[in-house]
Structures are given as C-alpha cells and as structure tokens.
C-alpha cells in the first residue's frame, strides 16, 4: 500500500479508536468516494462502521442523487439523507449565500445535534483550495462550529521579537502517524483522512481501485464538471477528457483552480476576507 494511503488508513483507524459517534460526510464527489473506499479498506469485512451523511440541498444534479443511491446500496451504507425543509422554503438559489447557509451549514448543524456526533469525517484536501492549507487531520470545532487555530496573545504573554499569536493546536507529527485527538472544550472534531492527497492522487486512486464515479466528471460536448456542487452554482469547464486517464493528463497540463466552476462571488468574498484576516 502506498505511504499516502497508509497515512489515511491510520487516521481513520485512530479516529475510530478515539471517538464514539462518527459521521462521514458524503457529497458523492470523487473525494468522498475515495474516503468511503478507504474506510472500507480500514476495517475487517469491508464495511463502513459509521453513519454516512448526505446533505441534500434540493438543488443537486439528478446524477448526484442516482449515484448516491447506487453507492448506498452497493456498499450497504447506513445513510442519513438530511434536508433542511424549513430552510429550503425560506431560500432560493437566486441568493446563493443565504441558500448555502440554510441548506448546507444549518442543515449540518441540525444533523450533528440530532445524532449527537462527536466527530465528522470529511474528504477535504489541502491542494483543493489554498484556505485549506492550514487544516489538520484532526481539527476541533467549537459549539458555533468554528475553528480557532490561533488567538492573539494577551499583553502579559507578549514577548518582544516573538509572534503575537498563540497557536491553539499542536503541530501534528503526521509523518510518524502521531495525531492529537483530544481537545478540551471542543464541540466536535473534524477528521480529514485525505488531507495530503492531490487532485491527481484522487483520480489515480479511483482508476487503480476501479471505483465507481459520478458520470458528470466526464466530458460531453466539450464540457465536464471538475468539482460537483449544486446545479445553479456549478458550471462545467471546457474539456474533452472523457476517461480517467484523459482527466489525469488534462490536470497535468491545465492551469486554473479545481473549484473554478463553483459560484465565484462566494469563493472570492471568502478569499478576500481570509486574506485580510477577517476569518
């Protein structure tokens, strides 16, 4: 097994040993398919011993729903399909921020509360978006679901020539598979087993393991989806890659960000806010 797969399996097993009630987020995208497959490979019998959560915004592509149901059946998943019905009535995709907030964020909060999850496992990667560079394999969230990796030092703590910030989370010794899993005052923990993977790693794994994959990723009439979100906010990219090998070849030469097809305003606002330090 490749070292980078070994690390993912270690994280998954460490998580299983550390937390009582883990939920796995499953968007049906390529990353979450790899994550589920890695979980299956981490435990005897090839089962996923966690509840699998699909946040249904009501605005996904029909192919996403079909693929979700097919995988749930094929891999015998204990799946929760969660919809924030109230929030869906109040919002429309014309207002993407409000729509996302109600149909994804609030929806997730409700699932976490309802099922009392103490940890959530996600298929995010560092190379996916630069703001994820700071993420850790095990990452605490407070009761408002926020992550505070640093806090400003108090006047008493400040020393001349030293940083003005206190890092709230220890460095992870991931090369030795040593992770901090206990966090005081954490509401729940986010676990990111494929944090170190690249987009090409994901596609190579999908190819080598012959994993089922959403057909939207493959080009039709010169367009394909590189990242899957909700239908109104996700646009296809120009591409003729209709096989996994062609996708890998395209990624090796193509410029542009993986999430370039996603709603640009929201991405740009978040980027700007983060660049300035507002969040």
């Amino acid at each position: 097994m490749d070292k980078f797969v070994q690390r993912s399996v270690s994280v998954i097993r460490e998580a299983k040993a550390s937390y009582k009630n883990i939920g796995v987020l499953f968007s049906t995208g390529k990353d979450s398919v790899c994550l589920l497959d890695l979980i299956r490979k981490s435990f005897p019998g090839g089962v996923v011993p966690f509840k699998v959560i699909h946040l249904d915004t009501g605005e996904k592509f029909p192919e996403i729903y079909e693929f979700r149901d097919m995988i749930a059946k094929k891999w015998n998943l204990d799946m929760i399909v969660s919809r924030n019905e109230e929030g869906m009535k109040e919002t429309s995709p014309d207002k993407p921020f409000e729509c996302c907030m109600k149909r994804k964020t609030e929806n997730l909060k409700k699932v976490v509360e309802k099922y009392k999850f103490d940890a959530l496992m996600l298929g995010i990667r560092r190379d996916e978006h630069y703001i994820r560079n700071l993420e850790r394999y095990f990452s605490p969230r407070d009761k408002t679901m926020q992550w505070h990796i640093v806090r400003p030092k108090t006047e008493e703590e400040k020393r001349e020539g030293d940083s003005d910030f206190v890092y709230q989370q220890n460095v992870e010794l991931s090369g030795w598979n040593l992770f901090q899993t206990d966090f005081l005052d954490a509401h729940h923990i986010r676990i990111h087993p494929i944090l170190h993977w690249t987009e090409i790693d994901v596609w190579e794994y999908v190819r080598d393991q012959k994993l089922p994959i959403n057909p939207l990723y493959f080009a039709k009439n010169g367009k394909r989806y590189r990242s899957l979100g909700c239908k109104p906010c996700t646009k296809p990219i120009d591409s003729n890659a209709s096989t996994i090998d062609e996708i890998i070849e395209e990624l090796q030469t193509k410029k542009g960000e993986e999430r370039e097809g996603r709603c640009q305003d929201k991405e740009q606002i978040m980027r700007k806010l983060r660049a300035l330090g507002y969040c």
Partner: peptide, 14 residues
Amino acid sequence: REYVVDGEVQTRED
C-alpha cells in the same frame, strides 16, 4: 458580530 460565522459569509437574512 462577525462577517463570517462557521465558515459562512453572513448576509442580511442572518
């Protein structure tokens, strides 16, 4: 209190 809560940009509706 903040422009961003829980990783999401706040709007008038919030």
